[in-house]
Write a protein that binds this DNA or RNA. Structure first.
Length: 638
RNA sequence: GCCAACGUAGCUCAACGGUAGAGCUCUGGUUUUGUAAACCAGGGGUUAUCGGUUCGAAUCCGAUCGUUGGCUCCA
């Protein structure tokens, strides 16, 4: 007999060698039915795991968040079995879970296409219905290698796996797969699943290796949850900045310039509103602003190291036998400005900003709406300072990042620290000092961050600020990069208090990152329903009939004189149609104007998202609008 | 760049080897309207481009360009 301690602290005794499932059955038949896996001494395990000593046990049921992960993982196996039964020559590589689902990498000559999904799903349903148990067998490493010797992928997986014991899972018609587990007890517990997509993926994530087929699926505890998820995906697609950009006439792309955004008048209003705010807040933080050319002599880029590290991604042009590089970064130009005169330590920290237009040749498959483009504007700045000023300056930039993101209502971003990459300039000592400065600044502010080893820029480590788009893909916005190398390469100096010349430290930083990307993220963040200060069209006047056209125009004139972006819908539509159209265009405010309003010299205000309307005078409205715009309020309530 | 899919009117889509259509938008007209879409008519397409197969191609095949989803990359 063994003693089994349950989560509530109670202890039951059970037969030596009984399974976790037996324990669940002992506790109650309902629990046994809902059980998916078990936690034995805090470690996830199959329900079929035999209990041979005194343990603490916790039964994982369908309600536990861990259960869905196990179900998804098991779904990957069931999908693998389905694919192998349809195409027996398929070789399985690796099948983990991801957010909301799972995938399996498969080596198969035949291309799996979306037309095959139904066939795979049908087969999976068949396997699930058959209610076949997942059986675990454990083998020592050597025997495991022997078992998979004809399969180069599984052999590779064994070689990469840790530990001396390898486990295999068997289910269905002779199907087995090397896998750490745990799994659901039987295929019938797989939940509700759906094949979502198929894409190429390099083996080991290495572009030099073979391209495998990665089949993605999603799985949920039940049909309802699956449907909710699919609905959420549809909803998310409606937030897509590419779709909203078209609907709201903000920007466009053309074959004549792939990766080069064309901003339309309404897009420019957003752009300029962002920049106006940006300039104001940078001014408060003590930044000055410069502008440097977008094309500079190639030799400059040799000196900066960009040519060595990134020439494949740079644009070049030759005129009069002189080769110019279109700038991929603003820093070398900024360094020339620095060098144009002498500098004293008294000027430090010297914060020089530049809204710099840069071009980077991105491979065709990388482009994505405004978010990944070949031409973009960086809200760049370079801070020149003494080594002892580094931490304070980095902290200052972090403060600025938080302040700006807050203004736009971005709360859901995460922070990453990237360290020395293989391709780098500068000594190890310099890298260590620089990295520690960044860590020191983050820690002193109590900020949580993730470390990306080897992901830094070639000239220094960096802190990045990431945010997710409508499909939960994470993108970098802001970045803070410490650079001890570039000032040295360019021979930058300042005169210190002891009257000697020293090399300054340089901090590269961007807050919005790429203005194009920021605009894309901003559109998705608000789903096109912008706060008043950003809205390209702030208020639309809807006249009930032609009878009140003159009064409507008078109101329009007053709003425009007050600097409000107002338009008028004087079409021969009924008021309901005008309201519907204004809603579709995400108007913050609509003013309904009819004979009643004309008589009272008022306007009837409909606020986006509010049910009730309000009748106010135009002057009241204007002062309310001005207040909201001045405060950059995110709320429309007046 | 790699794997796969897609490209039809300004937008969203239909037609899937046999005369390119609808809704919205746009233009003209009727209606003069009271809070989420009145009615009638009209305009608008060398079906991304180029080549091939066929009596006949939006439809089948190939190439190119672009887009989408992943992979790789992202100074």
């Amino acid at each position: 007999m063994v003693k089994v301690e349950l989560p509530d602290g109670s202890v039951i005794s059970a037969d030596d060698g009984c399974t976790a499932l037996n324990i669940a059955e002992k506790i109650g038949p309902k629990l046994a039915k809902a059980a998916v896996a078990a936690k034995i001494n805090g470690k996830l395990a199959d329900l079929s795991t035999p209990i041979t000593s005194d343990v603490k046990i916790e039964i994982i049921t369908e309600k536990d968040p861990l259960a869905i992960e196990i179900m998804r993982h098991s779904c990957a196996h069931i999908m693998a079995e389905a694919i192998c039964s349809i195409w027996p020559e398929a070789k399985l590589v690796y099948g983990p879970i991801v957010a909301d689902g799972f995938y399996y990498d498969i080596d198969l000559e035949k291309s799996i296409t979306p037309e095959d999904f139904a066939k795979i799903e049908d087969k999976m349903a068949e396997i699930a219905k058959a209610d076949v148990p997942f059986k675990r067998i454990e083998l020592p490493r050597q025997q495991a290698l022997e078992r998979v010797k004809n399969d180069k992928y599984k052999t590779d997986n064994v070689n990469r796996a840790q530990g001396d014991v390898m486990s295999f899972y068997l289910h269905g018609d002779g199907f087995e797969d090397l896998c750490r587990g745990p799994h659901i007890p039987s295929t019938s517990k797989a939940g509700a699943f759906k094949i979502m997509s198929v894409a190429g993926a390099y083996w080991h994530g290495d572009a030099k290796e073979k391209m495998l087929q990665r089949v993605y699926g999603t799985a949920w505890a039940n049909k309802k949850q699956l449907e909710d998820y699919l609905n959420r995906l549809e909803e998310a697609k409606r937030r897509d900045h590419r779709i909203i950009g078209k609907q709201m006439d903000l920007f466009s792309f053309h074959e004549e310039g792939p990766g080069f955004a064309f901003l339309h008048p309404k897009g420019m209003i957003l752009w300029n509103s962002i920049i106006d705010y940006w300039r104001q807040v940078h001014n408060c933080y003590g930044y000055s602003e410069i502008k440097t050319p977008i094309m500079l002599n190639e030799s400059l880029w040799h000196r900066s190291g960009h040519w060595d590290n990134y020439k494949e991604n740079m644009y070049f042009t030759t005129v009069d036998e002189v080769t110019y590089a279109v700038k991929p970064m603003n820093c070398p130009g900024g360094l020339l400005v620095y060098k144009s005169r002498q500098h004293s330590y008294r000027e430090f920290p010297m914060k020089v900003a530049e809204l710099g237009l840069v071009h980077r040749y991105e491979a065709s498959g990388q482009m994505h709406g405004l978010i990944r483009v070949r031409q973009f504007t960086q809200d760049d700045a370079h801070i020149f300072c003494r080594p002892d000023q580094i931490q304070d300056e980095i902290k200052g930039v972090i403060d600025l990042v938080f302040e700006i993101y807050k203004t736009f209502g971005f709360n859901d971003f995460h922070i990453e620290l990237s360290t020395k990459p293989e391709k780098h300039i500068g000594s190890d000592e310099i890298w260590e000092t620089a990295t520690n400065s960044l860590i020191g600044a983050l820690d002193s502010k109590g900020i949580k961050y993730q470390v990306n080893e080897g992901d830094g820029a070639f000239y220094g480590p960096k802190i990045d600020f990431h945010i997710a788009d409508c499909l939960q893909r994470s993108w970098q916005l802001g970045t803070i990069q410490l650079d001890f190398s570039m000032p040295d390469r360019f021979g930058l100096v300042y005169t210190d208090s002891d009257n000697t010349e020293k090399t300054p430290v340089m901090i590269h930083r961007a807050i919005l990152g790429s203005l194009e990307r920021f605009l894309g993220i901003l559109i998705e963040h608000f789903a096109g329903a912008f706060p008043l200060w950003l809205a390209p069209e702030q208020v639309r006047l809807l006249s009930i009939s032609e009878k009140t056209q003159d009064y409507s125009n008078e109101v329009l004139g007053k709003l425009k004189d007050a600097g409000i972006r107002a338009t008028i819908d004087s079409a021969a539509d009924k008021i309901g149609a005008k309201i519907a159209k204004a809603h579709a265009d995400h108007l913050p405010y609509m003013l309904v104007i009819g004979e009643k309003e004309q008589q009272e010299q008022m306007v009837n205000v409909r606020t986006r998202g509010a049910k009730d309307t309000k009748t106010v005078t135009v002057d009241e409205l204007i002062s309310a609008f001005k207040k909201k715009i001045g405060e950059r309020s995110l709320s429309l309530e007046i």
